[in-house]
Amino acid sequence: MFIELDLQSETPLYEQLINQLIEGIASGALKPGDPLPSVRNLAENLGINLHTVNKSYTLLKQEGFLQVHRKKGVIVQPDAMPGVTAEFEAKLFRQLRSLAAEAAVRGMTEEAFVNRCKRLYEDTTMKRGGDGQ
């Protein structure tokens, strides 16, 4: 699996795992209906506590990115992915606002900031050939 966690990062491990799984879905590395490793197996493979993986899976299930089946285990949502909600837009605004502010303080132009964001979006979704909608 493509997941690499940074044990020295200030970002909690469960959040890193969530982010990487969502990136995997966005890039097409994880497709709708794909099975994910069990909580125990993924925790063992990554060398982290199984409660960390369980928390990540639970939050992704609550958000609509994953489904849990008794027989199939954890799978990538086979139906429609969650849409853009007011909560998501608020989260996006908060995160981009702080990054935009730091970019401005460091002397990055608005054009450079927007171009970086656009390139990152394109790179993230390029493998699946979608527009992220």
Rank of each mutant, 00 (worst) to 15 (best):
G130Q: 07
K61L: 11
G47K: 04
L59D: 07
L99F: 04
L59N: 08
D79F: 10
D6P: 05
M1N: 05
F88L: 15
Q77V: 02
L60I: 01
Q133M: 14
N41C: 05
T124H: 02
H69N: 15
S9Y: 07
T109S: 15
T52Q: 05
L92T: 06
A43S: 05
R97D: 15
R40C: 03
A112M: 05
I3R: 00
V74R: 07
V53T: 08
F65D: 01
G28R: 08
E4N: 07
L120N: 13
L13A: 10
D131Q: 08
T52P: 07
R97W: 02
V76R: 03
Q77M: 05
S56M: 02
K55V: 00
L66I: 02
Y121G: 06
A112K: 10
N45T: 10
A104N: 11
A104C: 06
L92N: 03
V114R: 15
M81Y: 11
P82E: 01
L60V: 03
A86K: 14
G132A: 13
A86E: 15
P32Y: 05
I75W: 00
T125D: 00
R106W: 00
P82K: 02
R97G: 06
R116Y: 10
F2E: 10
S9F: 07
F93N: 10
E10H: 09
V105T: 13
K71W: 04
E89S: 11
L36P: 06
F88E: 13
D123P: 03
Q8S: 12
P82S: 00
G73K: 05
A90C: 08
E10N: 14
Q67L: 08
S38A: 08
E23K: 12
K55H: 00
L92A: 13
Q133H: 14
A29T: 15
T58S: 09
Q8N: 15
E110S: 10
S9R: 06
Y14I: 01
S38L: 04
L42E: 06
T58L: 00
G33F: 04
L36K: 14
Y14W: 13
E15Q: 12
E89F: 02
A80Q: 15
R40M: 08
P35S: 13
N49P: 00
L96E: 11
L50D: 07
E111R: 14
L96P: 06
L99E: 13
M81D: 07
V76T: 02
R128Q: 08
D34V: 00
D79V: 06
N19P: 00
L17M: 10
T125F: 13
A103C: 09
A104E: 11
N45L: 07
G129W: 00
A90Q: 11
G28P: 03
Q16D: 09
Y57S: 11
N45Q: 10
A104M: 13
R128F: 10
K71G: 05
K91C: 03
N41D: 14
V114E: 10
Q62H: 09
V68M: 04
E23F: 12
Q20L: 04
G73H: 04
L21Y: 05
E44I: 02
G28W: 03
A43C: 03
L60N: 06
L66M: 07
V68K: 14
E122Q: 12
P32H: 04
T11D: 02
G129A: 01
L30R: 06
Y57N: 09
S9N: 07
A26K: 05
Q16S: 11
P32R: 03
